[in-house]
Design a protein around this nucleic acid. Sequence first.
DNA 1: AAGTGGTCTAGACCACTCC
DNA 2: GAGTGGTCTAGACCACTTC
Lengths: 255, 255
Amino acid sequence: MKTFFLDEDKIDKSSVIPVYYQLASLLKKQIFEGKLQPGEALPPENDLAARYEMSRMTVRRAISELVSAGLVYTQKGVGTFVSKPKLDNVVFELNDFFEEIRKRNMEPSTKLLTVKIVKADQELAKKLEINAGTRCLYFRMVLSADDEPLVYENKYIVFSKQKPILETELKDPSLSNLASVHSDQRPSISKKVLSASVATESEAKYLGLPVKAPVFVVEQTVYDPEKKPIGWGTSIYRGDRYKLTSYTGWSTESL
Amino acid sequence: MKTFFLDEDKIDKSSVIPVYYQLASLLKKQIFEGKLQPGEALPPENDLAARYEMSRMTVRRAISELVSAGLVYTQKGVGTFVSKPKLDNVVFELNDFFEEIRKRNMEPSTKLLTVKIVKADQELAKKLEINAGTRCLYFRMVLSADDEPLVYENKYIVFSKQKPILETELKDPSLSNLASVHSDQRPSISKKVLSASVATESEAKYLGLPVKAPVFVVEQTVYDPEKKPIGWGTSIYRGDRYKLTSYTGWSTESL
DNA sequence: AAGTGGTCTAGACCACTCC
DNA sequence: GAGTGGTCTAGACCACTTC
C-alpha cells in the first residue's frame, strides 16, 4: 500500500490563484520529484476530490492541465498515469522573419530586387498546378537584419488581379501576405519543406557567402481553401547565421 | 444586427457524439465557411447555451476546443474572437529515428562502429561542463533504413558507473536512452540544435555521400533534473534523404 | 459488480471591460 | 451597471475495464 497525500494541505481555497492551478502544480511537483514515477497511476479523481475538498470537475480541470502538458495520460475505465518523458521527439520552430528579428532587438529590412510578370515554365506550372505559359507575379528579394543579408527569396503568385505593388506590403513580404493581396483567393493552408543545401553562385552573391557554403532551403506553397496552390517560393537561409534550437522534457520551471 | 443561429438544430443530444464536440464542429464550420470572419466575435457563452439548449459549462468545453486548435481566442470581460490564421509560423518535427523509419514501413538498424572509454578533450569538457581528462563513454554508429545508411552519430556520456554494453540497448541507441542506462542521473531535459553543413571526409564515407555534400547536423545535449549535462552528441543526417515538412493553417479536415 | 474516467447539468460568485 | 469570460460546486448518468 502506497501513501499519497503526504504533503500538507497546500490548497488555499481563498487564494487568488485558482484551485485547479494549485492542484496541478502540486501534482507536477510530485512527478518532478519522482514521488510519482512514470507508469505509475495518479490517485482516482474521486479520491483527489475528497482529499483536497474540491469538486471532481475541478480535479478534472487540474488533470487536464497535466494532460496537455504531456505529463500524464488517461485511460478510460482504468486510470490516469504518469507519462515517460519523450526526449527524442522534438519540434523546431521557424517563425516569421520580421517577428524573429525584432525579438532579437535588431532591425529587419527588405530589399526588393525584382518584381515583374513572368510566364510560368514547366517546373513552376507543375508547382502551381497551372498551364505552362500562364502569367504569374514574380518577386525576388533579400531580407536583412541590421543591414546584414540573411535570407534570399524567390516567390511566384498566380496572377489573378491587376493591382499595384504597394510600398506597405514590403513591411510583410511573406508569401502568404503577398498571396492574399495579389490573389482573388485568400490563402488558408501553407506547406513548408526544409532541406539542407549549398549556395549557388547567385545565392552566394546576394547573401555575401562563398559559393557552396551551407544553407537552409525552405520551399513554401500556399493554398486556398480548396487546396489549390496560389503561391510558391523558395527561401535561402544563411547556414552560418541560422540554427534551429529546441528544448524538450520535464523542467521544474512553470511551477 | 447580425443573425447567427441560421443553421438548423444540428445538435443531437441523444447522439453518441458528445454535445460539446458537435457544437465545436458547428462553430468550426462557420469559421471555415467565412460566416465568422477573423476578428469577429462569437456569440456570448450564455447566448450559445440558451440557443443550443445546453449548459454554459458545455459551451465552454466546446469553445476551449477551438482555443486549443488556435481558431479563436478569448478576452476576459470582452468576448471570444476568431483568430487570424498564422501561415508563417511553422514547426518542423524531428522524431525518434526508429519510430520514423518504421512509420514508413522500412526496417531501421544500428551499426555500432566504436564504443570505448575516452578522456574528454577541451571541447567535450566544455560541452559536458566537466574537467578536461575526465573519462567518458564514447559511441560512434551509423543508423540505416533497409540497409541504406542515413545518419552518422558520435555520442559521449559522462562515465559514472561501470556497466556492460548490452545488445538490447542498440534497439534504442538514442542519446537519452544511452544516458539513462549509463549514468547515475536520469535524463530529464534535452536540447537539440539543427544546422546546415557539408559532409566531412569521414561523414561522407560512412553515409555513402560525396565529400561536401549537404547534410543536416543535429547537436544534442541531455541534462539531468539539475540542468547538469550528462550526455552530448552530434548526428549527421543525409541532406539528399532528409527533408522536414510542415503544414499550417485552417483545414476543413477534422470536422 | 465495482471502480474508473468522460460527459453534462443548473446553478453560483468573481474579476474584468466598457459605457 | 450591464455584460463578458473564469472559476467552482454537488450532484448525475454513462461507457469502459477489471475482477
